[in-house]
């Protein structure tokens, strides 16, 4: 027999002076292979057309639909209701600015953070359209891709105690991104350059190592490993700097 699902959904429209944060409850008959993507769209089309939430690709690759699902940040599009209890509570991701109900503004946050960590290849070399590409080992290309798989969904940031407490902490996502450039020989930044970017309390030294982030990452990015490698590397450079200053 199919279940009657109960949804408790956080509601607030910051643009509406009459709106106050509260929770609305909805009921829906569960159908085979029901995902939160299908469920939320049905709720909006059939029950309450003011319901606000974000989806784009609906195939877990664009990172739009991060939300807190029964207390845990995750991607709504690939969450099957059959994996959840009959009562489902949905909240917007914390840390990011609320647009309305379950929709949050991740765009501004990620752009600012990418600017802060200078998320691009740093090189003086000009592109030569006549020349062959620089060679690279295939294994290295694969390793870079491993870290490049982050979809900026914000789940790791939302789950992170540090990021929730201090607005300037760049989060596991950013540290992983830096690790990606450290690995890439096309980026000519030195260790000291990277240290300047993340060797601070807003960066790697702000991380308390609680590792909630890796647990929730829908891409299963090895965040623990990257944080560890970066911490050791940056700690070492920090020590060297300290030493130099004393001398």
């Amino acid at each position: 027999m199919s279940r009657q699902l109960k949804f408790n959904i956080f509601r607030y429209n910051p643009q509406d002076p009459n709106s106050v944060p509260h929770t609305d409850s909805f009921w829906l008959d569960e159908t085979p292979s029901l995902t939160l993507f299908i469920a939320l769209n049905r709720l909006r089309e059939e029950q309450d057309s003011s319901l606000n939430f974000d989806f784009a690709c609906r195939m877990a690759i664009c990172g739009s639909c991060g939300m807190v699902i029964n207390g845990r940040p995750g991607l709504a599009c690939r969450t099957l209701t059959s994996d959840l209890p009959g009562e489902i509570t949905l909240m917007p991701l914390p840390v990011f600015k609320l647009v309305g109900d379950l929709a949050v503004d991740t765009g501004t946050w990620f752009r600012a953070t990418n600017e802060k960590i200078e998320s691009w290849i740093h090189t003086d070399q000009e592109f030569d359209p006549e020349a062959l590409e620089e060679r690279m080992e295939n294994d290295l290309a694969n390793s870079i891709f491993e870290l490049e798989r982050c979809i900026e969904c914000g789940c790791c940031v939302a789950s992170c105690g540090t990021a929730n407490m201090r607005a300037d902490f760049v989060g596991a996502f950013a540290l992983n991104r830096v690790a990606r450039f450290v690995m890439d020989p096309r980026d000519k930044r030195s260790d000291a350059d990277y240290f300047e970017v993340v060797g601070t309390d807003q960066g790697i030294f702000g991380c308390m190592g609680l590792l909630a982030c890796e647990d929730v990452c829908p891409r299963k990015i090895p965040l623990q490993d990257q944080l560890g490698i970066l911490r050791r590397k940056m700690g070492f450079i920090g020590l060297k700097n300290l030493f130099r200053r004393k001398v």
Binding site: W120, I121, Q125, F127, P129, A131, L132, E133, E134, R135, M136, E137, N138, A141, N142, I144, F145, E148, D184, R186, D187
Partner: peptide, 16 residues
């Protein structure tokens, strides 16, 4: 040219 340019900008294309 466009493929190589993307590589120059950091695209991790798979290699031979």
């Amino acid at each position: 040219i466009a493929v190589r340019e993307a590589s120059h900008w950091g695209m991790p294309w798979n290699r031979v």
